[in-house]
Structure formats: C-alpha cells, structure tokens
Simulated assay, not measured.
Amino acid sequence: MTASAGRGEADDAAERYRPGYELVAEQLLGYIVEQNLMPGDRLPTEQGLAEILGATRNVTREAVKVLAAMGRLSVRKGAGIFVAASPGELANDQLAHFQPTSMEHVLMLLDYRRLIESETARRAATLATPIEVRAIRENAELTLAAGKTVDAQEFARVDALFHECVGNAAHNLFLRSSVANIRRLLSQSDVLLFHGDLPGSLEVAADQHIAITQAIAMGDDESAAELMTAHIDTTQHQFERRIRDRVFNVSTKPAPAGPQPSEQQASSAS
C-alpha cells in the first residue's frame, strides 16, 4: 500500500464518522416504514423508542429533535410523538416513508430533480424577464463568492436562492413548487449524510451555476437544460459516495456487546 493510499483510507474513515443520534434517527425512520406508520400516527414514548432501537434515552431524544427539526416528526407537549405531515405538505402520504440515507430513495429523488430542474432551466432561458435574469446572476455570483471562501452555510443559503430564482423564471407554479419540495427532501439527506461536512467542491458547483446563468441570459434553452442536468449529476456523485461510505461503515462495524449500547458507544459510532 502506498503512503497516499494510506492517507486516502484515513480520510475515508474520518468521513464515515457519524454521531450516535444521527444513526438512531436513521433507525427511527426505518421503524416508521416497517410499521407502515402514516402522517398523524403516534409513536411510542422516547423511552419506548429507546428500547425498540437499542439506544439510550438521551441519544433517542436527540434523534427525535433532529427529525422534528427536519419536519419528519411532530412532538406535541403532553400528547406524544407523531409522524408529521408529508414534507412540503404534498398529497402523497407515501413520502412520509422517504429514507434520506437510502441509496435507492436518494437516486429516485435526484432522477426526479433532474427531470424537473432541467425543464425549469430550459423554460427560464426562453421566459425569464431581465429582472429575473439579474436575480439569477446575482445569486450565482454569490455562490461563487461563498465557494471561494469555503463558507458552507452561506453557500447553502444562496444556492437555495439561485435554484429558486431559476424556478421562478420558468413561470410555472407547479414546477416552482416541485423544485422547492425536492430541495426540502434533499436537505434531510444533507443533515443525516453530511452533518456539517462539505459535500464536495463548492467552487465547482458555483462555476456550474455561472454557466447555467449564462445560458439562460443568452436564451439558449438547450444548453441551459444540459448544464442543469450536468450540475445535478455532480450532486448525485457526491451523494453516492457518501451513502457508499455509510453502507461500508455499517457492514464493517463490530456487533455490540449487549442489547443496549451505552450513550458513549452510541455517540462514537463510526
């Protein structure tokens, strides 16, 4: 093994670290699917979930908080824990079973995103007003600035605005709504897969935003659609790598010594 290969494996091992509450959150989403629970259905108490999932109550509480913040659970004081309404208030309750760390589910979502956002870019290139083109360009340039300073939080903010502006320029209420809902679901994968890490090169993504903007500004609908497709392909490669890291990590993790791991064990799972 070469020295560079050794460093690569060490980097991969570091990337595979995930806090215990994220692992339990993933298990909890799986439990909802296994039990075929739908929006409005009540879950066991924190203590009951901890026993079912083989985790401590503290780690389970943190997992519930994360899923509530993501909009997947609803915690009602004095009433209990419930499966929340489908993300984005979509009519299809099956989206309550979306698994943010499932390769199959994420790839299906990205395939849908590819169809929707390539079409929004195509239409934006022919329908965008000068004001809308300026908004798209301004936010593309802001993503480039955030990418150069490696400001992940700012990049996420202006990245969302960029895609929202492209959606607005398509002048179709349903396309715009679909873009928003797709991003809402993908943000759940960001939380459970990237947990603060940079998913990939922010500058590369920002450069792609600039190219998409130029195609829209020139009215080149075919190029705009193709460039948006390439942009989403890049995102897909990042998700695939992170999910494969997770699957490899789970498959190589030693079995726990007892039925209920301690809080320290759960929070240091790699």
Rank of each mutant, 00 (worst) to 15 (best):
P44Q: 08
D11H: 12
L73H: 03
N58Y: 03
V24R: 08
D11G: 03
I116Y: 02
P100V: 11
A215G: 05
I210N: 03
P100M: 07
A14V: 14
F239M: 03
A152G: 08
L107P: 00
E34D: 15
S74Q: 13
Q27C: 14
R134N: 02
V247Y: 11
A121H: 05
Q47M: 08
A125K: 07
S187H: 13
D111V: 07
P261N: 07
M218N: 15
A69C: 00
S223Y: 03
N58M: 02
S118F: 05
S268W: 03
R241V: 11
L53C: 03
H209M: 02
A266D: 09
E26W: 14
F98S: 08
K148H: 13
Y21C: 09
V106K: 04
L73P: 02
N172P: 04
A10L: 13
E9P: 00
L186K: 04
L202H: 02
G167V: 02
V75T: 11
G80L: 07
A215N: 04
F162C: 00
G196W: 05
H195D: 12
L161I: 01
S262Y: 08
R183V: 05
I216G: 07
N92V: 12
R123E: 13
R57S: 01
P39T: 12
G258L: 08
S189N: 09
L95S: 02
T2G: 06
Q47A: 14
V59N: 05
D233Q: 05
A125N: 09
N58Q: 04
E132R: 00
A121M: 10
L73F: 03
Q94F: 10
A266E: 13
A156C: 01
D111P: 02
